[in-house]
Amino acid sequence: MAPVRRGLVAIVVLLAFVFLLRSSSSASSDSRDTHSSERPVQVPPRVRTHAGRQQSAQFFIEDIADRPLRERLRYQYPYDIDAKFPAFIWQTWKDVPSSSWFPDELRPSEESWSQLHPGFVHEVLGDKTAEHLIRYLYSSVPEVVEAYESLPVPVLKADLFRYLILLARGGVYSDIDTEALQPAIDWLPKDLDPLSVGLVVGIEADPDRPDWHDWYSRRIQFCQWTIQSKPGHPILRDVVATIVEDTLRMKREGILTMARMDKSIVEFTGPAVWTDAVFRYFNNEDYFQNEKSRNVTYEDFTGQTTQKKVGDVVVLPITSFSPGVGQMGAEEPDHPMAFVRHDFGGTWKPANERYIG
Rank of each mutant, 00 (worst) to 15 (best):
M1S: 11
P3N: 00
A10M: 01
V12C: 11
L14E: 05
L20H: 06
L20N: 05
R22E: 10
S25F: 14
S26N: 07
D30Q: 12
D33E: 09
T34V: 15
R39A: 06
V43I: 13
R48P: 05
R48I: 10
Q54W: 12
Q54G: 05
Q55V: 15
Q55C: 05
F59D: 04
F60M: 01
L69H: 00
R70K: 01
Y75P: 02
Q76L: 14
P78C: 09
Y79I: 02
D80F: 15
D80T: 05
D82G: 10
A83G: 04
Q91V: 06
K94S: 09
S100T: 03
W101M: 10
F102P: 03
P103R: 00
D104R: 12
S114L: 13
P118G: 02
G119Y: 02
G119I: 00
F120Y: 15
H122A: 08
E123T: 12
L125T: 06
D127E: 11
A130K: 01
H132Q: 11
Y136F: 11
L137S: 02
L137W: 02
Y138M: 01
P142N: 00
P142K: 00
E143S: 02
E146D: 15
A147C: 01
A147L: 03
Y148A: 08
L151M: 03
V153H: 06
K157S: 11
K157W: 07
F161R: 13
R162Y: 11
R162A: 08
L164A: 07
I165Q: 05
L167W: 04
R169G: 03
G170D: 05
V172L: 11
Y173Q: 01
S174K: 03
S174M: 05
A180E: 05
P183G: 08
A184W: 14
I185S: 13
K190C: 05
L195F: 10
L195P: 01
A205Y: 14
A205N: 10
P207H: 09
D208M: 12
D214P: 02
Y216E: 13
R218P: 05
R219Q: 13
F222Q: 07
C223W: 06
W225G: 14
T226C: 15
Q228I: 15
P231I: 12
G232L: 12
G232M: 12
A241R: 01
I243L: 07
R249P: 02
R249D: 08
M250I: 00
M258P: 03
R260T: 11
D262I: 00
V266W: 15
E267N: 13
F268H: 08
A272D: 15
W274D: 08
T275D: 08
T275W: 13
F282E: 03
N283Y: 00
N284P: 02
N284G: 02
D286A: 05
F288G: 00
F288W: 00
Q289A: 10
S293A: 10
S293Q: 13
R294G: 08
F301Y: 14
G303C: 10
T305E: 11
T305R: 12
K309C: 08
G311M: 06
V314M: 08
V315H: 06
I318L: 06
S320E: 04
F321L: 05
S322F: 10
P323N: 04
P323Q: 04
G329T: 04
G329N: 06
E331A: 10
D334S: 11
M337L: 13
V340E: 09
H342Y: 12
H342P: 09
D343L: 12
P350Q: 09
N352T: 10
I356M: 10
G357M: 09
